[in-house]
Write a protein that binds this DNA or RNA. Structure first.
Lengths: 353, 353
DNA sequence: CTGAAAGCGCTTACAG
DNA sequence: CTGAAAGCGCTTACAG
């Protein structure tokens, strides 16, 4: 199936020249100075003479020396590692993990940090994985996502004095650093856009009450309609899923008179509504408007393409890492940054006379 | 927006009891033995007496002691860390990163390992990030994905004697350990399924020649048609994208007579074809069959739902980590595991009289 | 079976 | 400005 690589393979392995990694001792020997001086030339260059510094740097280059991570961490009490627990898979969607991870990893690299992954242990103490990393000193701090009301990780890490930053606030007087996406602003933008199209009767497909993220998205709809002096939305609450979206739409359309615009808190629900509307003989974007949230890849591929609210995950990841890097270098006052999502208008939100 | 968390926040921070992490010395003191004995009780329990072992374990429990990672790594020449470079974002799709990462992280945890992420540096030496980690000894080994013909990382790591395993073979006589998904088997299964439906004229939307993954998927189609004694597919080559899929379908349908079944090497292309077919007045699953590859979330949400080939990323991640863990504990013979993907049949592949 | 000692590769006071 | 020394928290020969 691929004869290409077969014969050339050897070309790439020019014998094991495997240079044993060089240590600070090798550098000191080659530069003719003590190891202490090498260390200083690298970490606090201003305390060594220029001549010395240059000879050291030259030796470093010649040997392709890089300080050993473990040794550096052991004496410096720093690992240059940041812990991040992957969101649970069933946290439906996570279409966004990709962009989020990338932005974190790249920002981390700029600070000389790396991201270490962990996963939730199936059932059992949700703190276990954090306790473990804290106690073995394997990271300098954490980035938290999926924070919710009363997140126990926040109490634990604060208590232990371990630096962390959170994607998501938990209350209005948070005493830790966070970055959050203004979900209410996102759904409010969708509502305003629909109102401009002439829509007056709104339906809302939402999650069950009690999740920080979901509650914010609902409040954005409710408040934007108040501002527009329109009646509140008819709300159907359900969990993520295509079938759930279909059922919710049916329920909304059963009202008399039925809504002409349906806002949803997540794209999968919106796409379910799209499919159901078509089966019902309605032309979405003409007879009925539908909007989603998250702008998952499927939104653009839907028919008609789905208007959705896109969260700037690439910025969020970077902001979080920058914030944590500040924390790790002494900056202690908590800070919070609220990021505004962007409404991506596509054909599904037309209609409304 | 969320008054819930505000007041209760304090409940979770019962004063900073921040126990300074205990060290092996604390344990040795509490257990009344030397630190060497503590280390042995933990690492080579059979060399200490049962009584001692128990007293040590008790002290460990009492102090919630965990060996410091950096110290352990420094002396043991092991970091218990595995490096993984994220696939480039533009590697369109990666709908699968999520499942893949999860399975790797969870498998790693079972081996006492953790995954450290890195990202490709924009332009520049693609090996730089690996060289850096190797030279600072920050990981025990690597997991490679997106391997392609003549992957320079393989030569570099082999040469340096750094353990690694690859998601993807590069040739037939690979001298390293790999796990690969049998892409040819995947598209062949799609073809057989379509043949069973009565299809005889096939179109294939593929990537440009020269990618390991793409070439395998094409060969699966070609070979399955040969076996079925049917004419070869008409092939249109293009890059990923909805518009690209639409254009490719138009090109295929321009043939005389046009194909009744279109196989694609990726779901986005397939969904583009689906949308174009509808615009052309064709009913997919009746007038024309279309299949995809990857089973991205959008496949299920398409209309009609898209028949697609699903790669078992959750298994792949685990297999890779298990393999690497074996390598790290002395097992040296290279091994290869070929995993078969699964055809997920949905409505888009109907028709064919 | 147990412990004293050396050492992993660094950094950081501390003298000079 | 430079270097000798101590020490970070472990593990691993080596004696006893």
């Amino acid at each position: 199936m691929d004869e290409h690589g077969a014969s050339e393979q050897k070309t790439f392995s020019p014998r094991s020249t495997s240079s044993p990694r060089s240590t600070i001792k090798d550098v000191s020997r080659l530069a003719g100075v003590s190891v202490a001086t090498v260390s200083k030339a690298l970490n606090t260059p201003h305390v060594v003479s220029e001549a010395t510094r240059e000879r050291v740097l030259e030796a470093v280059r010649a040997l392709d020396y890089r300080p050993n991570r473990a040794a550096r961490g052991l004496v410096g009490k720093r690992t240059y590692l940041v812990g991040y627990r992957l969101p649970s898979v069933q946290a439906a969607g996570n279409p966004t993990l990709d962009a989020f991870l990338h932005s974190m990893v790249e920002a981390a690299a700029r600070h000389g940090l790396e991201i270490v992954l962990s996963a939730d242990r199936p059932r059992g103490n949700p703190l276990a994985v954090y306790e473990d990393m804290v106690r073995r000193g394997s990271v300098d701090g954490f980035i938290l996502s999926e924070t919710d009301y009363h997140d126990p990780r926040i109490a634990y890490l604060s208590d232990q004095g371990v630096p962390f930053v959170a994607f998501g606030r938990t209350s209005d007087d948070d005493t830790f650093s966070w970055v959050d996406v203004d979900g209410a602003a996102g759904t409010a933008a969708a509502v305003r856009h629909l109102v401009e199209q002439g829509h007056e009767r709104f339906g809302l497909i939402a999650w069950p009450e009690g999740s920080r993220t979901g509650d914010a998205r609902v409040s954005g709809v409710v408040e934007a309609l108040e501002v527009a002096d329109l009646p509140p939305p008819r709300i159907v609450r359900t969990v993520n899923g295509l079938e759930e979206g279909r059922a919710a739409l049916r329920e909304l359309l059963a009202a008399e008179p039925p809504p002409t615009a349906v806002v949803t808190v997540q794209d999968t629900l919106a796409i379910g509504a799209l499919l159901e509307a078509r089966d019902l003989g309605l032309e979405v974007g003409v007879d009925l408007a539908v909007t989603g949230f998250d702008d998952i890849p499927a939104a653009e591929m839907a028919s008609p393409p789905l208007t959705s609210v896109r969260q700037p995950f690439d910025r969020v990841g970077e902001l979080l890492v920058d914030m944590l890097a500040r924390r790790l270098t002494g900056h202690h006052e908590p800070e919070g940054i609220l990021v505004t999502p962007e409404l991506i208008v596509r054909a599904s939100s037309g209609g409304g006379r």
